[in-house]
């Protein structure tokens, strides 16, 4: 028996420098990972465990049992948030549990597009707007900059610039979702001119 085997399994990891309970050093970033799981009970739960174990915050899980990958497995897309330095640990943790990681953002989100929204963004719930885009636009919101009106003209509309990362060829679907949220909330969308 080696000293290591003797150690308490829940003991703090030796590398204490990297352990921070409040979310790590960098600002959390949103990532999307596409996985393939065998169609067996409990596999989804097991696959999600490494996300929490490695300091990730799960934002959404899209799991469609009806769909099959060419290899006969079930595709699952998960959106999560974590400090930049923890992302590799999450991917590693997933692979260790035997989950196939098909793509992790950089590859999946090939295009970035910028839109400017104008209107009463704060009153109409900016975070709700962003959440809807995350959910329905097939995109991750990579950056948001809000510019509120001057204090002497609070009735003026505010403007927000969003950087959206979409899948290759998915820009039109994303824009469609942006338009639909904007119409509902009476916002004006200044769209990018494609192919400039």
């Amino acid at each position: 028996m080696t000293p290591a085997d003797d150690a308490d399994p829940v003991e703090e990891p030796a590398d204490e420098e990297n352990v921070e309970t409040d979310g790590g050093r960098g600002d959390p970033q949103v990532h999307t990972i596409q996985l393939e799981l065998p169609d067996e009970p409990g596999r989804l739960l097991a696959a999600l465990q490494p996300v929490a174990d490695n300091g990730g915050n799960l934002l959404s899980v899209v799991h469609e049992r009806g769909e099959r990958t060419p290899r006969g497995r079930i595709p699952v897309a998960i959106d999560l948030e974590c400090p930049p330095e923890r992302f590799d640990g999450i991917l590693e943790g997933l692979r260790e549990t035997g989950v196939t990681v098909v793509t992790a953002d950089a590859e999946a989100y090939a295009d970035e597009l910028v839109v400017v929204l104008v209107g009463h963004l704060v009153d109409t719930g900016l975070s709700g707007t962003l959440q809807r885009l995350r959910k329905h636009a097939g995109a991750t919101v990579a950056d948001v900059t809000l510019s509120a009106p001057d204090a002497d003209a609070p009735e003026e509309p505010s403007a927000a610039r969003l950087h959206l990362r979409t899948r290759a060829g998915g820009a039109e679907q994303t824009l469609e979702a942006v338009r639909s949220v904007a119409e509902e909330k009476d916002l004006t969308v200044v769209e990018p001119l494609g192919g400039v």
């Binding site: 400017v116 104008v118 900059t145 510019s147 009106p149 403007a159 610039r161 004006t188 200044v190």
Partner: peptide, 11 residues
């Protein structure tokens, strides 16, 4: 169209 929309674009 508010001027801040143009500012955000310019940034």
């Amino acid at each position: 169209l508010p001027p801040n929309a143009l500012e955000l674009a310019a940034e």
